[in-house]
Design a protein around this nucleic acid. Structure first.
Lengths: 193, 193
DNA sequence: GTCTATACGATGATAGAC
DNA sequence: GTCTATCATCGTATAGAC
């Protein structure tokens, strides 16, 4: 921390740190209040900065939403890459569900923010996550899923939005229950485990 | 329309009509853009009124959300009253799911609006729907549901939020798929029907 | 390069004219 | 009942201090 990376002034390191703190604060408030109800002023106040300082690090409020969501979207993309190497619906469904549940339990706050804010619909974020959803749907059910398959698939994804109601559940119990429920919706019977 | 109800001036009838039109416009825009992204100006413009005219009929923007959501909440309450008269988890689950699906298919737009806008969390609407959710949970699983039961129950409710992805599905197909999926989550096997 | 001060148009909201 | 006028706050933008 006292020794900045070569070519990076300690000033730049400090700035990056500030940027990350803004991002963390924003993500917490977005998850708590929703994107629209979170003002730049709140974010600035919590950090002892001015609104304009926040604006220096992010050109627009929507950039905060983007920057906060991207790491999660990338992690899901990698998960889908792995799923794509598997053959058979059952193997794919199990891997997808396992990876998704792992991610959700590890990042409950992220999930709450990303899950269902109408603000995401208005910005291109929804395009990106829509692309991921379609890719996952195709991986499981091919290019022409039936209506019932689509309902089941989206039902699995919608379970993400129940996380706020389940804050009191310990990680292990949450993980097991999510896996069981998701696999049941996809009609994947439990293994002989 | 030309003959106002006794004791009601035609002016009052007109006002009630205006109020209802504002409500319909608001509900449509809330479902489309989300509550926060819908301005009173938009609502007023679509109706050829001014912002302040809208304010005459509703003291606050949040009152629009309230008024738009109440009929649906009441209908769910009545559904739960009926469910409460039944004995046995299976009968209750089937009746609840049937009624819920019926409501969703009949009021897709309403469901989209009510489902998951963070604005509802900030106003007392969430208290009311939280009460309904808890009542339904208790009707199905008693006062001390397990973690797995809670996950399954909330998973069923979260399916509501998939409706925007399923706009292209015809009513019948949507109804069947929703029922099947919800009952599967609740572990209610199909009847011999 | 990082931040503060200040101002812009639009928002939700209120008060009072007609 | 509906309007105009007004207000604080919002996201955004720029000028300039350090």
């Amino acid at each position: 921390m006292a020794t900045p990376v070569r070519g990076r002034s300690s000033r730049a390191v400090q700035a990056e740190q500030t940027r990350q703190q803004i991002l963390d604060t924003a993500q917490r408030l977005f998850a708590d209040l929703g994107y629209d109800a979170t003002s730049l002023q709140m974010i600035a106040d919590e950090m002892g900065l001015t609104k304009a300082a926040v604006y220096y690090h992010f050109r627009a409020k929507s950039d905060l939403l983007h920057a906060a969501m991207i790491p999660g979207l990338e992690r899901i993309e990698i998960l889908l890459d792995t799923v794509a190497t598997l053959r058979g619906r059952r193997a794919r469904a199990e891997h997808l569900v396992n990876g998704l549940v792992e991610f959700l339990v590890d990042n409950r706050q992220y999930a709450v923010m990303a899950a269902n804010d109408p603000a995401a619909k208005r910005h291109n974020l929804d395009e990106e996550s829509e692309r991921l959803r379609l890719r996952a749907l195709t991986l499981l059910f091919g290019n022409t899923p039936t209506g019932a398959e689509r309902v089941a698939f989206y039902a699995v994804l919608s379970i993400v939005e129940t996380l706020p109601e389940l804050v009191d559940l310990p990680d292990d119990e949450l993980r097991d229950a999510l896996q069981t429920t998701m696999l049941r919706v996809l009609r994947v019977p439990p293994g002989v485990g």
